[in-house]
Simulated scan of single mutants.
Amino acid sequence: MKILTLKRMMALALCGTGFVTMAQMKRNFKQEEANKKIVVSFYQGLFGDKDYSVIDKYIALDYIQHNPALADGAEALKNAVQIWMKDVPKGKVNFQHVAADGDLVFLHVKTFGPTGKLTAIAEIFRVKDNRIVEHWDVIQEVPEKSANQHPMF
């Protein structure tokens, strides 16, 4: 019978829970940068420039949408944004943070919502084969008063 050392047991436990060491995981920073460019170009094109053709350029046909107000697929996104953006002027998207980790790209955006109030948006996109294949978002109006001294941006 083989006796496992504490180090070996910890390594097995971490691997079994999905954790890996940095030596085991090789990040592809070049691909992460490319993914960030794809997402930022898409987002600025769609929400800043109001160019709906970016959906065909960047969104996979079988796009998965986690926003409960939208159906899956590129066509559903096209239909929704044409309604949302009907009277919205073009402008520069105010990206506060852009980060990537593997195939995920994270955006933190400062904007004005449909009510005209300052709004914070956190977006997560999954990129595969240079196309956006999945999306999550959290949208929150910035309150007039905060319980702390930390700004949302």
Rank of each mutant, 00 (worst) to 15 (best):
C15P: 00
C15Q: 13
G16T: 06
T17I: 12
T17W: 04
G18F: 07
F19E: 14
V20F: 13
T21G: 14
Q24A: 07
N28G: 02
Q31S: 12
V39S: 04
V39I: 10
G45Q: 02
D49N: 15
K50P: 00
K50V: 08
D51G: 09
Y52R: 04
S53N: 05
V54T: 07
V54G: 05
I59C: 07
A60K: 14
A60E: 12
A60W: 07
A60Y: 08
L61N: 15
D62G: 01
Y63S: 03
Q65Y: 00
H66A: 11
H66I: 11
N67G: 06
P68S: 06
A69K: 13
A71V: 00
I83C: 00
M85Q: 10
D87R: 05
D87I: 05
V88C: 05
V93H: 10
H97V: 14
D101L: 08
D101E: 15
G102D: 11
L104D: 07
L107S: 08
H108L: 15
K110I: 08
F112E: 12
G113Q: 11
P114R: 09
T115F: 13
G116K: 06
A120W: 04
A122T: 13
I124K: 00
F125V: 10
R126F: 09
V127R: 10
K128W: 02
N130H: 10
I132Y: 06
I132G: 02
V133H: 08
V133Y: 05
V133P: 11
E134G: 04
H135Q: 03
W136L: 01
D137N: 10
V138E: 07
E141H: 11
E141C: 12
P143N: 04
E144Y: 06
E144R: 09
K145T: 14
K145V: 13
K145L: 15
K145P: 02
A147H: 06
